[in-house]
Design a protein around this nucleic acid. Structure first.
Length: 468
RNA sequence: GGCGACGUAGCCAAGUGGCUUAAGGCGAAGGUCUGCAAAACCUUUAUUCGUCGGUUCGAAUCCGACCGUCGCCUCCA
């Protein structure tokens, strides 16, 4: 398979450092607030990537960090007059609640910055020994001029950066582009002791420390939003390679923004919806289908109109799954098999996903299958159960296991009980009789009232079906 | 100012030199089925890929100019 690598600016054959193991590190949230639906896009697409790599048989170690010490957390803590850890814990919990609702698989490790102070200090010490970091009165900075390859990820040149520097002036820095590895403690901030005095880590160093600790000095995939390319990921490379003198990451993957009216959704612009609010109105599957229908690296406009359109698409999938399940219930094990080769759909699905996780194409394969199978079903012939099983197996291993877009049928025990089922059956029987006697108004009334209660009656050739 | 990305039907979106006289989803129009619905099926919905030039036997796909949109260069997924 091929993956587009930001570092080389082209698609490259994916060759893990140590197959079949694959190490993935994704920049996770700073836990100072609920994450918005734009953040959710990155998390969902990273989830689909790791699910697909597992589908391919790789042994994936998926690491997502939680930044739990940072200016914004401290600011909020001071506003509420609580410890920073209180804020961090609150939004860490919220983060886990929200990703679960989005059907995002748990990472193997969720390292926290505050849990890796020792590793962070080790790294800074080594950078200091290598002459790359300098200490000015308790603040330690990275000297970007000491790393020859600085700018290789973002394609920026130091001269250009300096020319357009909008970085705030800081007398302590040798160069405006130097960045903080360690910040000396200020009043009302969490702090740890270090060789340079009390302080806290800079933002970039935690990711170098935690990714190398959990995945080694060179690992396979490092992913994050497009806005992290510079300076965050650029700095991570400088820090990590400045110590290890080895390539830090083989494949850099960056997610396109979720836009609102063509503008990047962001907290600072204020044009955002929290993921939790969107999940209240649309299902995880709808959101995941919407994201899957665009390539992960392209910008995607977000609107209710698009969500509704995805919801309609999802209904098509859900109806189909229900139809196949109903057919399977009535099918004979040794029935006929239609002229249909399921393998071609697996092949096409894999071809699509192998091409830099082309999920829109993969989704198209799934819709193609639905259309073609529906066509076969409309021929009104009975097929053997292995046909329906093949279809369900395909959907489970692709649409669900990789993309996560198959809705769980509401289990009978949750929504109803046996008595309700019997009463429903009774009503359906009465309605069927009414229909036979052409009492259509009465029959429609039953259908309407039940629909209001959440039960949809559908008349088919084989009788009336109840959808809950 | 520097660097970069993008512009495909009413909307979203694949396709990056011949397999495509452009996938898939949503929407719209007509039809089949049905007592009616719903679902499903069939047909129609871009001779054309921002504009203008160029390269090529051949371009949405390569090159150039122009127009437009967005992003990064400060925290941001």
């Amino acid at each position: 398979m091929e993956i587009y690598n930001t570092l080389t600016k082209k698609k490259e054959e994916f060759k893990p450092v140590n197959p079949p193991n694959v190490g993935i590190y994704v920049c996770g949230p700073t836990v100072y607030d609920f994450f918005h639906i734009g953040n959710a896009r990155s998390f969902v697409m990273a989830d689909i990537m790791q699910r697909y790599l597992r589908y391919k048989g790789y042994k994936v170690k998926f690491v997502m960090n939680l930044t739990d010490v940072d200016d914004k957390i401290i600011k909020k803590a001071n506003e509420e007059d609580v410890e920073a850890s209180v804020i961090a814990e609150r939004f860490t919990n919220a983060f886990f609640e929200d990703i679960e609702k989005l059907k995002i698989k748990k990472a193997d490790v969720y390292p926290k910055a505050t849990g890796h102070i020792k590793e962070i200090l080790e790294l800074i010490k080594k950078l200091e020994i290598n002459g790359i970091a300098y200490n000015t009165g308790g603040d330690v900075f990275y000297d970007v001029h000491k790393f020859k390859e600085y700018g290789k990820l973002s394609g920026k040149k130091l001269d250009d950066l300096e020319a357009g520097a909008r970085v705030e002036v800081n007398d302590k820095k040798h160069n405006p582009l130097d960045f903080a590895l360690w910040k000396s403690a200020k009043e009302g901030e969490p702090h740890w002791s270090s060789p340079w005095g009390e302080g806290r880590p800079g933002w970039h160093i935690e990711c170098s420390a935690m990714s190398m600790k959990h995945l080694g000095e060179t690992f396979d995939i490092h992913a994050g939003g497009h806005d992290l390319i510079f300076p965050h990921h650029e700095n991570e490379i400088a820090q990590s390679e400045g110590v290890s003198h080895k390539p830090f990451v083989k494949y850099w993957v960056h997610f396109g923004f979720l836009n609102i009216k063509n503008e990047k959704m962001s907290k600072s612009l204020g044009n955002f919806f929290t993921a939790r609010d969107v999940i209240k109105r649309f299902s995880a599957e709808t959101i995941r289908l919407l994201f899957s229908q665009a390539h992960y690296a392209s910008p995607l406009n977000f609107s209710d109109e698009l969500l509704t359109s995805a919801q309609k698409g999802l209904e098509k999938i859900t109806n189909f799954v229900q139809t196949i399940n109903n057919k399977l219930d009535k099918a004979e094990p040794d029935g006929n098999y239609p002229e249909f080769i399921i393998q071609t759909y697996y092949d096409k699905f894999e071809q699509a996903m192998d091409d830099d996780f082309n999920s829109p194409k993969a989704v198209a394969v799934i819709f193609d299958l639905i259309k073609n199978v529906n066509k076969i079903l409309s021929e009104d012939e009975q097929w053997g159960s292995n046909f329906y099983e093949d279809i369900l197996d395909f959907l489970n291993s692709t649409a669900e296991a990789v993309l996560g877009i198959i809705q769980e049928p509401v289990s009978a025990s949750e929504s109803t009980n046996e008595t309700v089922d019997k009463l429903l059956d009774l009503l359906v029987q009465i309605r069927t009789k009414a229909k036979k006697e052409k009492l259509y108004e009465f029959a429609d009334q039953i259908r309407e009232k039940l629909s209001e209660l959440g039960f949809t009656l559908v008349d088919t050739k084989d009788g009336t079906e109840i959808k809950k």
